[in-house]
């Protein structure tokens, strides 16, 4: 069971188009991330990173393979979950290249929105949001407008949002791209802390040379195939 929790994918393929014009974006990808683990997903442009992330995020349907999320099979040559919207809301956290916070909500409500969408009472959702903001050291900006935050603060708020429904998996799409080295390393440190604190499996897609040495495990993706290698796991101060 332990092996199956977190995220586990076997033989995942994705083909765009049909016949002579068909493109195999993913070819029998295998990947496994345990709860509390942060792994890197690295590859050149066009290698299939984004396609893999979209398959994992249940926004596009793979062509074949098997995916297990938090111990439950969600895809096995076809979706095994009827409502993918609820799957994304409750069981997958997303962190984007840019924070993409909702500009007309304050910091707390940006985080509390997810539990509210999941049906939690407003008070409980806001309390949970404040707890996460505290853990990420941005509680002092709880009632601020998102436009008043620095880039690093915004990214921490987006991490808090991704964790708001306590999902077993977080997909981070180049979360450090717009940040300088110091802030980028700080974000990775936070991701590691959150992963171990909330037992969340985190996949970080990145090009960022600064943060690659911090991963203990790295998946390289090239021409739609993944290759696993051990990372340096450099200690974060």
């Amino acid at each position: 069971m332990k092996k199956e929790s977190g995220i586990h994918i076997e033989g995942l393929s994705k083909r765009y188009g049909e016949g002579a014009t068909a493109v195999d974006a993913l070819k029998e990808v295998n990947m496994s991330v345990a709860p509390g683990e942060v792994v890197g997903l690295i590859g050149p442009s066009g290698s299939g990173k984004t396609t893999l992330l979209k398959c994992l995020g249940a926004v596009i349907e793979p062509t074949q393979g098997r995916m297990t999320l938090g111990g439950e099979v969600i895809y096995d040559n076809g979706w095994r979950i009827s409502d993918l919207r609820v799957l994304r809301r409750d069981r997958i956290g997303f962190i984007f290249q840019a924070p993409y916070l909702i500009p007309f909500l304050d910091v707390t409500d940006n985080v509390a929105l997810l539990p509210m969408l999941a049906g939690r009472p407003n008070g409980e959702a806001r309390a949970r949001a404040l707890e996460l903001l505290q853990a990420l050291d941005v509680a002092h900006r709880a009632s601020a407008e998102t436009s008043e935050l620095s880039g690093g603060e915004q990214q921490r708020v987006s991490i808090a949002r991704a964790l708001a429904n306590r999902p077993p998996v977080i997909l981070a799409d180049e979360p450090t791209a717009p940040l300088d080295s110091e802030r980028a390393l700080a974000v990775v440190r936070i991701l590691n802390q959150m992963a171990s604190q909330y037992h969340t499996a985190i996949i970080v897609v990145t090009h960022d040379e600064k943060i690659i040495p911090t991963f203990k495990r790295i998946y390289h993706i090239r021409d739609g195939r993944t290759y696993e290698e051990a990372g340096e796991g450099r200690a974060l101060q």
Binding site: V59, R85, R88, Y100, P103, L113, L114, L117, A118
Partner: peptide, 16 residues
């Protein structure tokens, strides 16, 4: 559009 895409991705109902 970007905010709407994010809202949909994080599970907001179309009706919302």
């Amino acid at each position: 559009i970007r905010e709407i895409a994010v809202l949909k991705l994080i599970g907001t109902h179309n009706r919302t």
